[in-house]
């Protein structure tokens, strides 16, 4: 991969600088942008994460990325591009790093979006309080907003969900393999009958992911399901109590696989990957629109 970077320039000069980078590659490259990705960073740690994630995502999704970070000055930008890696077939990605007054950032972003392509906003860290004009302006621009309730909290995410169409929560995405494994436990008719007696679940995992899992079950089944959480850094175990019977999905040690078992079922191996943020985010960039089961689960989780 070859990467070229400009110095700090005015926002108005960004397009020209990107064009110069394209022309200066020294070999043919293809600008095949399929999306805009705006990454909001609140601190240096977020910036580091954003750069690491974009390095990985750019190799599978041609995009224009804008890293947006508030600072006390008129917005300035730094542009870079990369292309030429074997796997990338010479496809040209663009990265714009924008720093400046918080209130001036949405208009800077607007001026730099590639026309007609979807806009994804990945908001790292905590979400601003209700009524924040900058957040609302950013949401206005956005086709899909990506947040993480493990960082921002369920209540804040639920608040933003009311404003944004197509909101997705990375904490919810992390529970995906667990929901798949749990759903598969109830494909059989006799197991399906036991699902009617589900009264509570015990989860060993992060609090918000546990709440979303319980919210998902409540919303799918249309009734109350109790939740007992034992805190852990990732979901390791979910036990579903159905009357006198119980079903279990449990990670095997530090593995990315586990065992799913229940009454009348032979224990079977299930994949329970703990995917890196880059992988989770890349998956979300392939989707557009709202995800109804998530919205329902979020509402239930918040109500509990």
């Amino acid at each position: 991969m070859s990467r070229h970077q400009s110095g700090w320039i005015d926002v108005g000069e960004v397009e020209r600088a990107l064009a110069a980078l394209r022309a200066g590659e020294g070999h043919p490259s293809v600008r095949a942008t399929t999306l805009n990705l705006v990454v909001r960073c609140g601190n240096a740690e977020h910036l580091k994460t954003a750069n690491r994630v974009l390095d990985r995502i750019g190799s599978s999704r041609p995009l224009r990325a804008m890293i947006v970070m508030p600072a006390t000055r008129t917005p300035r930008a730094r542009v870079s591009s990369d292309s030429g890696d074997d796997h990338r077939r010479g496809v040209f990605n663009e990265l714009v790093e924008l720093r400046g007054n918080r209130v001036a950032l949405p208009s800077s972003v607007t001026s730099l979006l590639v026309a007609d392509l979807p806009v994804f906003l990945w908001w790292q860290g905590e979400l601003p309080p209700e009524g924040d004009a900058v957040l609302e302006e950013m949401i206005e621009l956005t086709t899909r907003m990506i947040v993480d309730s493990d960082q921002a909290g369920i209540d804040a995410v639920a608040r933003v969900d009311a404003l944004a169409t197509g909101l997705v929560d990375l904490a919810w995405v992390r529970t995906g393999p667990w929901r798949e494994a749990i759903a598969a436990l109830f494909d059989g008719r006799s197991q399906r009958k036991l699902l009617d007696h589900l009264v509570a679940i015990e989860v060993s995992g992060p609090r918000n992911q546990s709440a979303l899992l319980a919210g998902w079950l409540r919303s799918r089944l249309g009734r109350e399901v109790g939740l007992d959480t034992r805190r852990a850094v990732r979901v390791n175990r979910v036990r579903l109590i159905c009357g006198d019977e119980s079903f279990l999905v449990e990670r095997s040690g530090r593995n990315e696989h586990g065992i799913a078992s229940g009454p009348g079922l032979a224990p079977r191996t299930v994949a329970l990957p703990s995917s890196a943020v880059a992988l989770l985010l890349a998956g979300e960039l392939d989707r557009l629109g709202a995800e109804r089961p998530f919205e329902d689960a979020l509402a239930e989780a918040q109500a509990a």
Partner: peptide, 22 residues
């Protein structure tokens, strides 16, 4: 043994993988 159809399993609605379930 008889099996429930996947559409009878309310937990399957909206799952993303899109693979085979039966």
């Amino acid at each position: 043994s008889q099996r429930a159809r996947p559409e009878d399993n309310p937990l399957r609605e909206g799952l993303r993988v899109g693979g085979a379930s039966e």
